[in-house]
Computed example of a mutant assay.
Amino acid sequence: MEKKKLPIYELEDDIVKYLQPSNRDRLIIEAPTGSGKSTQLPQVLINNNVVQKGEIVVLQPRKVAARMLARRVAGEMGCRLGEEIGYQVRFEKIISDKTKVRFVTEGILIRELISNPSLSHIGAIVFDEFHERHIYSDVLLAITKRLQEETRPDLKIIVMSATLSAESITEYLSPCRSIKCSGRTYPVDVRHVNLNINSQTISDSVIKAIKSEVIKRGLEGDVLIFLPGAFEIRKTIEKLRLIKQLKGCLIVPLYGDLNPKDQDYALQASDKRKIIVSTNIAETSL
């Protein structure tokens, strides 16, 4: 799909208008899954020269999301990762003096606030996936709001979410603007499988579901399986690889403590049918 056709571009003119220096630089964007907000908003800000001084920092709740979004945006902009577009997570940093957009986890920005309380090197902070509310994002929003009010009136604050109830955040950030765009939806067929999970392991339940709902019904396409932790993921993968109908499939794990290279491998495009066995790390931004 041509990126300009993504729903977030319905709001491009409003985003540029509401983030002009003459307005209070606070904006809330409600944009559902599939609207393109995470990958396209940084490009809208760059292409329209909205942030004239300092870098754009995009906060992500998960390391894997920060890495993958940075790669995607760099690819769309035709630049090498680490030049105009980069990322920084714990123990890993791919940025340069040219970096205009930096995807980071909240812990990185908290440490920067300790060493540089004015955040003088930052021109805009984007709180992505803000509906995943937790203490770090709330504390950072409170600190940056106060920073903007007291010493950094030029600092732009943008809050984005797919499912956020915007009224309370709008009231907290007042005066600010709140805008909303449509999203792309796809048909979803929900089927509840009657399994006696009390008499078998969770991996056995997954195998039975795969056999009855995917293999027996002849469903095509990639498969995403959610499990609670790495132990259950490893056991399930072992059993999936024993199913002869899945011999040609690429069966890969995805969880937070996995090696970054293996995380990236799980999310890369493949010619083979892919079965990803993941924790909730794959729920958002990917």
Rank of each mutant, 00 (worst) to 15 (best):
Q40N: 13
K261L: 09
Y172N: 08
I46T: 05
Y265H: 13
I251T: 13
K235H: 15
Y9N: 11
K145Y: 05
S35P: 11
A166R: 01
R273M: 14
D154N: 11
Q148G: 07
V50H: 02
D25R: 08
K239I: 05
I276R: 08
Y9A: 04
Q43G: 04
A142Y: 09
R241N: 15
G107N: 10
I215N: 02
Y87A: 00
V190M: 15
K235V: 12
K247N: 12
Q263A: 01
L109S: 10
S96F: 07
R71F: 05
I85C: 02
I197A: 12
A142D: 12
L113P: 14
I276V: 15
T99P: 03
V188C: 03
I179D: 01
I197F: 12
K17H: 13
E150P: 00
V44T: 12
N196K: 14
K93N: 11
C176R: 01
S178M: 12
M77S: 00
T39C: 06
I179N: 02
E238T: 12
S161K: 01
L173A: 00
I202S: 07
K261H: 10
V206P: 09
P253C: 03
K156I: 09
S22W: 05
G218F: 00
I95P: 06
L27K: 10
V50C: 07
K53W: 11
G123P: 02
I202R: 15
E2Y: 14
P153M: 00
G218P: 04
Q268G: 11
V104E: 03
E112T: 10
T33G: 08
D25L: 05
S278A: 15
R72Y: 09
E220D: 08
I158Q: 00
V139E: 06
K244E: 11
S22N: 00
N196V: 11
T39A: 12
G221R: 15
M160G: 09
P42N: 11
G86I: 10
G36C: 08
R152K: 06
V277K: 03
Y136P: 04
L250I: 15
K216P: 01
Q268R: 15
K100M: 12
R133V: 15
V188F: 09
E83M: 01
S38H: 07
C181D: 03
G218N: 01
N23D: 11
E76W: 02
M77K: 14
I8H: 03
S168G: 05
E92R: 10
I251R: 13
L173Y: 01
